[in-house]
Write a protein that binds this DNA or RNA. Structure first.
Length: 742
DNA sequence: AAATGTGGAATTTTT
DNA sequence: TTCCACATTT
């Protein structure tokens, strides 16, 4: 069969895409065209009539991957992709629970809480029940609960052989009761509820089993116990599961992922008539030969593998460069020098990535890059929907959607400040507890007295007013209304450094507009009325579609935290952890901090599969590079305020010596411009250097003269810390503060 | 309610 | 060292 769809697939890819109806495990190596195979498989199933959009369920781990899949799929098929269930595990479970909230014993407008919300809920739980947070650290309980849920265990199913565990189980049970009372659901709960829904309701289970004849799973090596069991539950006798993964890139064991699922898959998903097919995608389209040789050689040191060897028809390429720096500072200086030379040769900055094992390592690099005026972007950190001001706005919106949301209530009852202090809040909570109602109810019913009582009554009126006014507006207008009427915008506008926060609040309106558009909702529908998307097929999915814009948006905000920071368009050097780099690729990659104890990290050595997971992490790091790979380490570095002497990582010596070119190591003692890297190429135009340097004297219109003592953030976000002679030490955003050299 | 001080911890992270 | 949460002070 020939079809443009299948053109230019290699034989293994073609075999995977056109596999006959049977479950299959696709061992897809790094850079082997995994997403392409996944999307083409779906398109092929549709094109050959083996599947309809309604019968496809494709699940990923991240929203980004889901978006990517949807985007590429819509280019491959003329069919409408809207009927398909494509999304993250959590997104799909949410969808299912919304549709069957009664059977799942959830309120129609259940709210999803993120880890932050969960933590504050736990703290309230501790207060209400007088739990000692020194004996039971909140974080530990949070972990305990998530871990239990991810193993599919309710409190009565957790084995407790000691007192401590027994008490944690009690806390777990109290937490569950509290969530249920408040109508909130945490991330793990989405999966567990959905799993139990399918277990307890045979008719529903059968419905979905028959509906989804094709289940496709991305990043299969990352599935945790509950996700795996969820998939098995959805798999009926007629279902085929197409699982794509790479056991060598399994790097999330610490959050419950189990590579062993890949081995179990062949057993668990085979039927008598149809054994599981296994296909290896080993041809790599990303990297030059030496890079792949290094990756292959490294990963061969792992014992527990399904086995796979990457190859390419491309040339061997350059050798891998390795560099021993005298210190962490010199390591950064080396990177800066090389990056300068590379960009001078015309390599776009965003084609270069600096990878490290732990976030703390970024600091030294940021320092050096700032000093050199090289724009950079640090991945990780605060995401859009996690920002305090955005969460405040979302809390008001949550109260519009569901008045009895105590978590949201407490978040904003005194924000912006309105004279409702801790004591008043405690009284209110006690009152609510006596009446067995929510805080919002207590606000209305409580015989409020005095100044605090008046403030409370006023707040109650504000909430009622917001609800009346916002609920009839279309979503974006409702958001716009709430951020103003709540007083949030005015509050931040009055703050001296509040402009960013005001901008983020405005951005929330934009996000709401985008949400309405992307979800295919009626842009004029009132945000709280049940709305039917314009293009969703009716019938069995009607209940799914009947979610109003506002609750939909709130779920979206919880499930998709958004970007760390919007890319500002300028090319910037990419700084991130190795974990964050998974799935990405760059022309040039620096793998830094290759010292024993750091990479492999000392904390990982105690874990069962710890060292092998670290090695897989190194494998991921190496395979990010297309053309050029630098491995660097420092003989000494500052760690936790202490000078530490490092010895080279075993991972470096596990590479074939012939592949590695060691660069002269006396960098710290050489003057700038004398390294081999620099000598090899004549430096032409350096990147537009920032005029600011640490140690430089500056003048500020208001604060007078001072000296730059620190800096952070690249490009438009760059900030400097200035020690002013008279005004003291201040952080200033370069984009706003008009500094001049002094 | 903001400002200041103190103690403890410091892999990796998506949803 | 540096960041954070939390407590105390003003």
């Amino acid at each position: 069969m020939s079809s443009p769809l299948l053109d230019s697939l290699n034989p293994e890819q073609l075999a995977a895409v056109t596999l006959p109806a049977a479950s299959a495990l696709i061992l897809a190596g790094a850079g082997s065209g995994k997403t392409r195979v996944l999307t083409t498989r779906i398109a092929w199933l549709l094109a050959t009539g083996q599947a309809t959009p309604q019968s496809v369920l494709a699940v990923t781990f991240t929203n980004k991957a889901a978006r990517e899949m949807l985007l590429r799929l819509s280019a491959l098929t003329p069919l409408n992709t809207r009927g398909m269930w494509i999304g993250t595990f959590h997104g799909l479970c949410n969808r299912m629970l919304r549709a069957h909230h009664r059977e799942a014993k959830l309120p129609a407008l259940f709210q999803i809480i993120d880890t932050q919300d969960q933590l504050s809920l736990l703290k309230r739980l501790y207060k209400a029940h007088g739990i000692d947070d020194t004996r039971f650290p909140v974080r530990q309980l949070q972990w305990f609960i998530a871990d239990a849920k991810e193993e599919g265990r309710r409190p009565n199913m957790v084995e407790a052989s000691d007192d401590f565990t027994r008490q944690q189980v009690e806390h777990y049970a109290l937490y569950e009761a509290m969530c249920q009372r408040e109508g909130v659901v945490d991330f793990a709960e989405l999966l567990l509820r959905s799993y139990e829904l399918l277990t307890d309701h045979e008719a529903l289970r059968e419905h979905y089993r028959q509906r989804f004849s094709h289940i496709l799973v991305d990043e299969f090596q990352d599935t945790n116990t509950l996700q795996y069991r969820w998939l098995r539950l959805l798999t009926g006798p007629e279902t085929t599961v197409f699982a794509v993964g790479d056991d060598d890139q399994s790097i999330y064991a610490f959050r419950g992922a189990k590579v062993a699922h890949m081995q179990r898959f062949e057993r668990d998903f085979a039927t008598a008539a149809r054994p599981v097919k296994l296909i290896r995608l080993e041809r790599n389209y990303r990297s030059h030969g030496h890079i792949l040789d290094a990756a292959n050689a490294l990963i061969r040191h792992n014992q527990a593998r399904l086995g796979k060897e990457l190859w390419t028809s491309e040339e061997k390429g350059e050798p891998i460069r390795a560099f021993v720096a005298a210190s962490d500072v010199d390591e950064a200086a080396f990177a800066v020098d090389v990056v300068r030379a590379l960009t001078a040769d015309g390599l776009p900055l965003d084609e270069v990535a600096l990878l490290y094992r732990s976030n703390a390592q970024s600091r030294v690099f940021e320092h050096a890059l700032f000093g050199a005026g090289i724009p950079y972007r640090v991945h990780g950190g605060m995401r859009f929907f996690e920002r305090a001001e955005v969460k405040h706005a979302l809390a008001y919106l949550r109260l519009v959607a569901a008045a009895d949301d105590d978590g949201a209530f407490l978040r904003v009852v005194n924000f912006p400040p309105r004279g409702i202090g801790a004591r008043t809040q405690e009284q209110l909570q006690a009152l609510a507890q006596r009446h067995g109602g929510s805080l919002a109810q207590a606000t209305v019913s409580g015989a409020a007295t005095g100044k605090a009582g008046a403030a409370l009554t006023a707040f109650g009126r504000l909430l009622a007013k917001l609800r009346d006014e916002a609920s009839v507006l279309p979503l974006p207008a409702a958001v716009e209304h709430v951020i103003h009427a709540s007083g949030l915008v005015a509050h931040y506008a009055a703050e001296k450094d509040g402009q960013d926060r005001v901008d983020n609040l405005t951005e929330l309106v934009t996000a709401a507009t985008a949400f309405v558009r992307e979800a295919g909702l009626d842009p004029d529908a009132p945000c709280v009325a049940p709305a039917v998307p314009t293009s969703e097929p009716s019938g069995e999915d009607a209940s799914v579609a009947a979610i109003a814009p506002l609750p939909g948006f709130l779920a979206h905000a919880a499930l998709e935290a958004g970007d760390t920071q919007a890319a500002d368009g300028k090319a910037a050097l990419q700084l991130m952890t190795v974990h964050a780099a998974k799935g990405l690729e760059f022309h040039t990659v620096f793998v830094t901090g290759l010292e024993e104890g750091l990479f492999p990290h000392e904390n990982s050595l105690a874990a069962a599969d710890g060292l092998e997971e670290e090695r897989r992490l190194m494998y991921v790091a190496i395979t990010r590079a297309r053309r050029r790979l630098y491995l660097t380490l420092a003989q000494q570095r500052m760690l936790h305020g202490q000078l530490r002497y490092g010895i080279p990582s075993r991972f470096v010596s596990e590479l074939p010596p012939g592949l590695v070119q060691w660069l002269p190591s006396a960098y710290g003692r050489m003057t700038a411009g004398e390294t081999v890297e620099r000598r090899a190429r004549t430096t032409r135009a350096a990147p537009a250097a920032s005029p600011w340097r640490i140690g430089q004297s500056v003048r500020h219109a208001k604060f007078g003269v001072g000296v730059i003592v620190d800096a952070e953030g690249g490009g438009n976000d760059a900030r400097v810390q200035v020690n002013f002679r008279d005004a003291g030490v201040k952080w200033l955003a370069l984009d706003y503060a008009k500094l001049e050299a002094a």
